Simulated scan of single mutants.
Amino acid sequence: MSKVTTGATMSLDGFIAGPEESGFDLLFQWYVNGDVEIPTASPAVPPLRVSAASAAVVEEEWASTGALVVGRHLYDMTNAWGGRHPMDVPVVVLTHRRPQDRPQDDEDFVFVTDGIEAAVARAKELAGAKDVVVNGGQMARQCLEAGLLDEVGIALVPVVLGAGKTLFGERGELGVAPVQFEGPVSVVQGTGVTHLRYRVKK
């Protein structure tokens, strides 16, 4: 049965990005510190080079994912990943307004303007029997608040950022706290990263 999941690389003090979108060079060192190459489908994103343990986790997650849900901020910040997401799946972008340079949906990007429930529903249609992955931050918060989230994956890295953005948005924004999780249901030790997975307690 397909799931709705979210996940992110996280610092030891709980941040998925530092202040003003900083800290990614420290958070994502594990993407380039190994011997196993994982190609990406994006012309703008080079192949990952990770440890064998991390490669097994990434390859399983990518193979089980059928569609993504992201916010307009990430879409703009990455310049739409050069036209195709690295995971080679369609991306549903939740936004207040469609970009002028994309007047129509296509096999790469679909734009939804009427809320997280509609975005996840559209992603499920695109994903078929596979999972839907919701981006961290505002999208993850809205999904958790709406009761749509099934699992959370954390790639925990040995760095402290001190401040920044958390997995479920800014501190104090989550409207359903506290939320309990089951697990970890999976723990994998990579090089410079520990992969953890939890289930949302329904």
Score class of each variant (00 low, 15 high):
29 Q>Y: 02
184 P>M: 07
200 V>W: 00
7 G>Q: 03
76 D>Y: 13
107 E>T: 13
67 A>S: 15
108 D>F: 10
92 V>N: 08
77 M>G: 02
171 R>P: 06
119 A>C: 12
51 S>F: 04
134 V>Y: 01
191 T>V: 14
21 E>V: 15
13 D>T: 04
156 L>P: 05
110 V>M: 05
140 A>P: 07
160 V>P: 04
98 R>L: 11
48 L>M: 14
160 V>Q: 00
166 T>A: 11
65 T>C: 13
51 S>I: 05
146 A>F: 08
41 A>C: 15
54 S>H: 04
153 G>E: 14
90 P>C: 06
101 D>S: 14
30 W>G: 08
149 L>C: 01
97 R>M: 09
24 F>N: 07
198 Y>K: 00
23 G>A: 08
196 L>A: 04
123 A>K: 03
29 Q>G: 12
115 G>P: 11
106 D>W: 05
151 E>R: 12
137 G>Y: 01
151 E>F: 00
157 V>H: 06
7 G>N: 03
75 Y>T: 03
76 D>L: 12
159 V>S: 00
132 V>R: 03
19 P>N: 02
36 V>N: 02
146 A>T: 14
113 T>L: 11
66 G>L: 09
162 G>L: 06
200 V>R: 05
138 Q>N: 12
77 M>T: 15
98 R>F: 14
43 P>D: 06
132 V>C: 00
32 V>D: 11
183 G>R: 05
109 F>L: 07
39 P>W: 10
135 N>Y: 13
129 A>Q: 13
177 A>D: 11
135 N>R: 00
93 V>A: 12
15 F>T: 05
3 K>H: 02
198 Y>W: 03
138 Q>S: 14
164 G>P: 06
20 E>D: 15
199 R>S: 07
22 S>K: 02
25 D>Q: 13
128 G>M: 09
177 A>Y: 11
37 E>A: 10
199 R>G: 01
162 G>K: 10
107 E>H: 10
107 E>M: 00
9 T>P: 12
24 F>R: 04
192 G>E: 10
102 R>D: 02
156 L>Q: 13
153 G>M: 07
62 W>V: 15
68 L>W: 06
37 E>G: 08
31 Y>R: 05
78 T>D: 06
127 A>S: 07
133 V>Q: 13
51 S>A: 08
69 V>S: 09
89 V>W: 11
80 A>H: 04
16 I>G: 10
120 V>D: 06
119 A>G: 13
135 N>M: 05
96 H>G: 13
108 D>S: 15
